[in-house]
């Protein structure tokens, strides 16, 4: 892995194929926890951490177990779900003990990371995405690439969460027509933000 490859992965995961605004994964927390910037940042950090752990663990699982014993088709999805769910439990236990305020603020959305399709998405994309072709790499290099991709996907998710929370904090004071207040205007915002992110198309 050289710096150029790592940079390509970063630009791709954060901007060009942003998990929320280009792939439209993880919209549930994106709409649900972006009323306030603090919560959005906390959720972003939690998802980033889980994405990193999930990429790391699922990549090892994929290479050392699933590929070796030819179980990819049969067991990839259930195994990944299991691994991610246990990781989220870990993060949740840690947060409840050390960051109770954030734990309270995130509410139901923390356990929902378990079923956050963005986390599952990065784990699955790490095993299938052709341009990155981790299959051709050594386990060490692939592990670095997969983990880095997880971190960058999480950072891209956090960026989208922060932008959305900034916009929504401003919209809280705006004279939005009653029919559009809350979630509807949030979805219109999402569409417009996604359009802005499309300017990066073709960069990587």
């Amino acid at each position: 892995m050289d710096v150029g490859q790592l940079l390509t992965i970063a630009v791709s995961a954060i901007l060009v194929s942003n998990f929320v605004l280009a792939r439209f994964l993880g919209l549930c927390p994106f709409i649900g926890v972006t009323q306030k910037t603090e919560n959005a940042l906390g959720m972003g950090a939690a998802v980033t951490f889980v994405m990193f752990l999930a990429s790391f663990a699922t990549f090892l699982l994929y290479r050392l177990v699933l590929l070796r014993y030819d179980l990819v088709l049969a067991l990839k999805t259930p195994m990944f779900i299991l691994v991610i769910a246990s990781l989220v439990q870990l993060v949740e236990l840690f947060m409840r003990a050390k960051l109770p305020a954030l734990y309270q603020a995130l509410g139901i959305y923390l356990p929902l990371i378990t079923t956050n399709c963005a986390v599952m998405g990065v784990a699955l994309l790490n095993t299938t995405d052709a341009p990155l072709a981790f299959r051709g790499m050594s386990i060490g290099a692939g592990l670095v690439a997969a983990s880095w991709r997880g971190i960058c996907a999480g950072l891209g998710f956090t960026l989208a969460m922060l932008l959305m929370s900034g916009v929504r904090e401003r919209l809280a004071r705006a004279d939005v027509p009653p029919a559009l207040r809350g979630v509807p205007i949030a979805f219109i915002c999402t569409g417009l933000m996604a359009m802005a992110f499309l300017g990066f198309a073709g960069m990587v």
């Binding site: 910037t37 932008l163 900034g166 401003r170 802005a196 499309l198 300017g199 990066f200 198309a201 960069m203």
Partner: peptide, 29 residues
């Protein structure tokens, strides 16, 4: 500069302003 040099589109002025408009509430903060 990034879009003109490395992006898929020849021109990036519209995207750049729309993109930074999204950042405006955060910058203000």
């Amino acid at each position: 500069a990034l879009i003109r040099r490395y992006g898929g589109y020849p021109e990036g002025v519209a995207y750049s302003i729309i993109f930074m408009n999204t950042f405006t509430p955060l910058i203000d903060r």
